[in-house]
Design a protein around this nucleic acid. Structure first.
Lengths: 326, 326
DNA sequence: TTGTAAGCGTTATCAA
DNA sequence: TTGATAACGCTTACAA
């Protein structure tokens, strides 16, 4: 592919002049400019961004380390993150970790070598100790030391769900989640606040104790068979808040398989937005996260950082989306 | 971040020697090597891939122009493409076109500027005239002049679906698809072969005519309301082949809403693999594409190209996955 | 208004 | 064994 030198030679000018033309900087005589533009057309010259990156020490590439782009909510988030970054002139590199910490570390090394401008990190692994100042990180739904983060208002989501179920007259509440606080792993993400918010509101406004099902972090999609068993062992439960739509969906299908009607016998609320679960046959009642707003906040943070503005942590509001399962 | 010069200075050697150490090339005295490695550790030097790219004229970045990573099958494909490319040392840039040709052209320009090593193109737009030799293209499910392609065996998929429905004793077949052959757009993709294979087999092995519903390319997920109406206008139909699982899912939900039982009254076969539609409440019968194999074929083609091997077009086999809808 | 030259961080060539 | 030095393609002083 032709370089700036080829243009300069063919136009009979110096490369600096060509540079001035393509960047519209400095003075260039009109006739010279036209001559150069003509040559550019003729030989199909386009500037090489790699060379520019080297000089500017900035390549406008952002990487997104994500467990799995196949997961419904993550897929949506990825889509919007790419869209928002594009508006600021950033390109997005996807890095599917498949939830493996080893893979995450491998990506981190690779991305450091590639001098990407930012790395969006979304993980449940115990990775804190491997993060350092040379990595331009921003994290989603997770706090790391010295790393700015964006998170949904998970606590408020828990409250909204509890309030909804209680308002609907549920007598026996249950929470189901793989948020892995406590013993199962040393990691605590912001997601656990869904549970905390739920519990807290229920404690204040509800008479009986909430049944709390907690299981280790899995693959985000399939939940352990044991959980289904436990649910069935509590026939008195008439209100369930699940940590994600995917989990809620599985729980609902299981309940229905065992003769329970949703929402008549048991009301179920998921978390994420229910958008992708039209094919459940009914619309899910869910606490909606806004992938658009999250993506916007992330892109804005990255942009602010390079504009030398202060990067604030951001909490994105959630809303209750009414559906047919509660 | 430190450069090779910093290492050289601190170790009291020339930069060429440092380069030899980090690339394990040429002769380096053991003691020198150790001294250099020590410095590298100390100052936390990692080589700058951007500089390497510039020199090698290769950056190991592949871009994937995809309509929407949120679409279930595309999301899976994206996931596997990234995985497969990673094995060959390639990084993946996602470019969501949202099906807009304008956006695709914008991406194409951007990617040319960025000298990416390959561009995987997945589009239904009439874009042929904008493609040129400077774009390192490979296409999925679509033939372009002088562009190598990978496609599923769509024709065979149509045959498998027709055979299945006929073997199950269906008397009145229907095909539903937005494959847009003929009038609706000048574009013809490989996907239209699903219809052709279906029709061809049905013609040979079936008595009555197949009802053919064709509608313009949409957003891959929602189908026009008119299609649902047309389906209901044909109560005699007892076997439907839909061009994708997403379409099949919508058709099934609509049929059930109107009192038809699937598969008892109408058998429905989708296309893609049915994997993501567990939450339909039943497993979909579907012609399975293999995102893994497709991704592998794509990655391999790109790799072959840079290994100076001949890049062949590749047709990936499909299989019938039995489910509960046919 | 224009051109020369330095420099961004590497690798590769060629002497030493 | 090693170290200058010339690329790679660009931007930006600095001179002219």
């Amino acid at each position: 592919m032709p370089s700036i030198k080829d243009v300069a030679r063919k136009a009979g000018v110096g490369i600096a002049t060509v540079s001035r033309v393509i960047n519209n900087s400095g003075y260039v005589k009109q006739s010279t400019r036209e001559k150069i533009e003509k040559v550019i057309q003729e030989i199909g010259y386009v500037p090489n961004e790699i060379a520019r990156s080297m000089l500017k020490q900035k390549n406008n590439i952002v990487a997104f380390i994500i467990p799995n782009s196949t997961h419904l909510f993550f897929g949506e988030l990825l889509y919007h993150v790419e869209l928002e970054l594009f508006k600021y002139g950033y390109k997005l590199m996807v890095c599917n970790s498949s939830e493996s910490m080893e893979k995450e570390l491998e990506y981190l090394d690779m991305l450091k070598n590639n001098r990407v401008d930012a790395i969006i990190l979304l993980t449940n692994n115990d990775i804190e100790q491997y993060l350092n100042k040379d990595l331009p990180l921003i994290s989603f739904d997770r706090k790391f030391k010295d790393v700015p983060f964006v998170a949904s208002d998970n606590y408020q989501g828990g409250i909204l769900a509890a309030k909804k179920l209680i308002d609907l007259g549920c007598d026996h509440l249950m929470f189901i989640g793989d948020d892995a606080q406590g013993d199962s792993t040393p990691v605590q993400t912001e997601v656990t606040k869904r549970r905390l918010g739920f519990m807290s509101y229920a404690k204040e406004h509800h008479h009986s104790e909430v049944i709390n099902i907690e299981y280790p972090l899995g693959n985000y999609i399939n939940i352990p068979e044991q959980v289904h068993k436990t649910v069935l062992e509590h026939p008195e439960v008439d209100g369930i808040f699940a940590i994600s739509d995917a989990v809620a969906c599985e729980v609902i299908l299981n309940l229905e398989k065992h003769g329970k009607r949703v929402p008549e016998d048991v009301k179920v609320i998921g978390f994420d937005g229910g958008r992708s679960f039209l094919n459940l046959g009914k619309k899910m009642t869910s606490i909606s996260q806004s992938p658009e707003q999250i993506a916007h906040a992330i892109a804005e943070s990255i942009h602010s950082f390079y504009a030398n503005e202060k990067v604030e942590n951001k909490i994105i509001p959630v809303t209750l989306t009414n559906g047919e399962t509660a």
